[in-house]
Simulated scan of single mutants.
Amino acid sequence: MKKKASSSIKLVFTCFIATSLLFSSNTQMFAETTTPSKITNVEQYLQHLTKQDRDRIHNHQEVGVPHKYLSPTLDTVSNKPVNIIVQFTQDPAITDVKKNAEIGETLTLSEASKKVEESHQNFKKKIGQAKKAAPNLEIRKEYRHSFNGVAMTVPAKDVQTLLSMEGIKAIWEDIQVSVEPPVPENEETQTKNTSPALDSIAHIGATKLHDEGITGKGLRLASLIQG
């Protein structure tokens, strides 16, 4: 295998994946911020966490009560365009079918798919109406399968308006994250690394989160690959 010590691995993640490891969904709207997100490492995330944020994280790990969620580092006051992921309250079809089955209710996949499509149509109608006052609302991508929602580019000041709409569960910041792989000091060091998983945990700074009791326990994580 060829090694390129100077190469960087660039991974594109939607922010709702990254922040789901750090922040709770059982929260009301976070306070507005005038600074767009420029957080690039765990230390900066921890510096931005308030006591209330930490309480929400730990409470989520224990109870996980769903409420509307807004990425806490998202700019919501300026006129600058921001990329976001809007999650609908309506679950994807397969998820909806399984949830109904768990409580003894019958819902066909066709019926669930129709509900998903209706959630998109209803949202588009609301966006059409909102465009009269905020013309720069743009839907870039639609999701219906493992996740139900849309990717958008909107003026930051309109984010709160979107979140207040009926049928919206969460708004996540959509950002690109670049990670450079660790460069081994020598071949001997690399040979002794018997657990790549442990090395990765230390490399991304997760041990600092673990020290604060933030382990992600109780969270459900989904990965959306947009190619």
Results as ranks from 00 to 15, higher is better:
I39Q: 03
Q176M: 05
V12H: 03
E166I: 01
E43F: 07
D75H: 06
A134T: 01
I17Q: 05
P155L: 02
T35I: 12
Q90P: 06
A206S: 02
Q129W: 14
V42I: 05
E187N: 01
V177C: 03
G218D: 10
I201W: 11
I9R: 14
E118T: 14
K51A: 13
I139T: 08
H210V: 12
H203I: 00
Q129T: 02
S113D: 06
P184N: 07
I201F: 07
I214L: 10
L209Y: 06
K38D: 11
G64F: 12
E105D: 14
T40P: 02
P72Q: 11
K99M: 09
D55R: 03
C15S: 12
A18K: 01
H58T: 13
L46Y: 13
Y45R: 00
V154H: 13
F147P: 00
A101R: 04
G64Y: 07
Q52T: 14
T50M: 09
T33A: 00
E187R: 03
F147N: 15
T35E: 04
H210S: 01
K124H: 15
Q190E: 13
N26R: 08
I127W: 15
H60I: 03
V77F: 08
K80N: 05
K10A: 02
L74G: 03
I127S: 10
S110L: 10
S20M: 04
V183K: 15
N186I: 12
G227W: 07
A18H: 07
H48G: 04
G216W: 05
N41E: 08
A222C: 05
T89E: 07
S178W: 03
A130S: 02
G205L: 00
P182T: 03
R140Q: 11
L46A: 01
P135I: 12
L70M: 11
P66K: 04
N59Y: 11
Q121R: 15
T191Y: 05
K131L: 02
K115D: 01
I139L: 10
H58V: 05
A5G: 13
E185S: 14
L107P: 14
Q52C: 07
N136I: 00
G64P: 07
T108E: 03
A31L: 04
K169G: 09
L163V: 06
S200C: 00
E142T: 15
H60T: 09
K98W: 06
H48P: 05
T73D: 13
T33C: 08
P66H: 15
E173Q: 15
E43N: 14
E173S: 09
P181W: 10
T14K: 00
E32D: 08
S6N: 02
S119Y: 06
K51R: 11
Q190T: 06
M29G: 11
K68G: 15
